[in-house]
Amino acid sequence: MKRVIGVVSLAVAAGLSGLAEAQVLKSVRDRGALHCGVSQGLPGFSNPDDKGNWTGFDVDFCRAIAAAIFNDPTKVKFTPLSAGDRFEPLRSGQIDVLSRNTTWTSSRDALFNFVGVTYYDGQGFMVRKALKVNSALELNGASVCAQTGTTTELNLADYFRANNMKYEVVAFGTADETIKAYESGRCDAFTTDVSQLFAEKLKLSNASDHVILPEVISKEPLGPLVRHGDDQWFDLVKWVHFAMLNAEELGVSSKTLDEALKAKQPEIRRMLGLEGSHGEQLGMTRDWVVRIVRHVGNYGEVFERNVGTSSKLGISRGLNRLWTKGGIQYAPPIR
């Protein structure tokens, strides 16, 4: 009897204190894999291919972290999460980083640390061409399908209220259920971030019957986030993002990397670890950026490969161009 109680209380106490660890980098190294939360399947952002390998813009960010730590982009375990259940696994330590097109808002930042904006997005609408609607302002009285647990529902309510229009929202738990209901005709419009509209449109059987309306009704800065309470890990993940932007800005890509390693430009030499020990300061190795660019590529390469005009989604860079090219992607320097 006593022994049973002892064992039970030990087990429970162990379960209770699981949250206390702070050294994420150490535990990632010890277990030999990064735990990364992604979506349940969003083409271009995080989607398993025919062989079950995860691909996409958000996936590549986690691969870049793994490349920087292990020099091996495959050392990532991906956990698919619904919009509603994405935060709890991060809070409880089940995943180390959440890279799942998550909007940076003040209330979420109060609980987690957003490492930056990997994708500047905004919310939009998709409708059937047959409706002959050209603007979101013509949607008075429409039924709108949305995914629950996102900023989408709130923006939708705000937009219709601000424009004094009536609407009906039908909210579903997963993206698949939402697009399925829209396709069945339950709703006149489907709303989510514009990048996702492009991605979800690919899932429709007759994609050309649908059109994405020009209005962007909200700011949706999407980015990866980590838990509170571990500044070292926060910095590391943040700088993986900045490194990819800096690499693009300095013209270092996976194709030009070998030449760049012979470059004389001090900025490039610092970034690639030929001068100084910036990677080590961040808890990685000197050649961390070399590893990221070799295995995953710079920001521009990742964007084009997964969601850019040459990909299936065909999204133009827009706001996500570098600041030097008319966009707002801007990274602090490595020095």
């Binding site: 209330s107 629950t148 529902e153 909210a171 738990g173």
Partner: peptide, 24 residues
């Protein structure tokens, strides 16, 4: 109900409200 978007207690309260307020 949550699978088909019927707004029952679990969908609107244990779902949307929980996610928006983080008061799990």
């Amino acid at each position: 109900a949550v699978a088909i978007g019927y707004p029952d207690l679990v969908a609107v309260f244990a779902g949307t409200t929980r996610i928006q307020t983080h008061q799990a």
